[in-house]
Computed example of a mutant assay.
Amino acid sequence: MIGDNSHLSLLSQTNVASLDSTKSIQKRLQCSICDYCVDEKDNSAFATFFCNVRAFREEKFQVWRCPKCQTIHCLDVVDLSHYYAKYPFTQAVITWPLKILYKNLHQQLAKHGFSQHHSFLDYGCGTGLFVNYLQQRNFVRAYGYDPYASKENFGDATVLEKAPFDYILLQDVIEHVENPSVLLAELNSLLAPGGYILIGTPNAANLDLSQPHISDFYNAVHVPYHLHIYTRNVVEFLGKNQGWEFVDFFDRAFHDTPWFGLNTRAWNQYQRLLDGTINVVFQPLQLKTALLSHKFLFYAIFGYWLSLHTEMSIMFRKS
Score class of each variant (00 low, 15 high):
D216Y: 09
T71S: 13
E311S: 04
F139Q: 05
I278C: 03
C74A: 14
D79V: 08
E152C: 11
F316H: 00
T22D: 15
G243T: 06
K111D: 15
R141S: 14
N203Q: 10
V16Q: 10
I168M: 07
P67W: 10
K86V: 07
A266H: 03
V234I: 13
T257A: 04
L169V: 06
S18P: 05
F302N: 07
Y83M: 11
L169H: 00
Q135F: 07
E186I: 04
L170H: 02
H226T: 05
N179F: 08
F114S: 00
F260Y: 14
V16S: 13
S32Q: 15
W259V: 11
G303M: 10
E161C: 09
T22A: 15
D216F: 09
K111G: 09
F316C: 02
L190F: 12
I25M: 12
V159S: 09
S307H: 02
A92T: 04
Y304A: 03
G3W: 05
Q286C: 13
N52C: 15
T14P: 00
V234R: 01
R65V: 03
L306V: 02
A266Y: 04
P97M: 13
Q30D: 13
Q107V: 06
K288F: 10
F50W: 07
N219P: 00
T231W: 08
E59Q: 14
D4Y: 11
I25S: 12
C66H: 00
T158H: 10
V280L: 05
W259Q: 13
K151E: 15
L209K: 03
G276I: 09
T158R: 09
L274N: 05
R54A: 15
Q283D: 13
W267F: 15
C31G: 04
L80I: 11
L183Y: 02
L190K: 08
A92C: 04
H294C: 13
L170I: 07
W305H: 14
S81W: 08
W305L: 15
G124D: 10
L10S: 08
W96A: 04
D166K: 10
Q136R: 12
H228Y: 15
N5I: 10
R65Q: 10
S18G: 12
A85T: 11
G3Q: 03
T231R: 03
Y143G: 01
L183F: 05
V159E: 09
I94R: 08
R57D: 14
Q269S: 13
L273Q: 03
Y196E: 12
F165V: 00
Q269A: 13
F260C: 14
A253R: 01
I199N: 01
R272I: 08
F154N: 01
P88V: 07
T127L: 07
L80W: 06
S293K: 00
Q116R: 11
D256K: 00
S150E: 13
C34K: 00
V38R: 01
F296H: 03
N268R: 08
G144T: 06
A185I: 06
Q26M: 13
S44M: 08
N104C: 12
R57E: 14
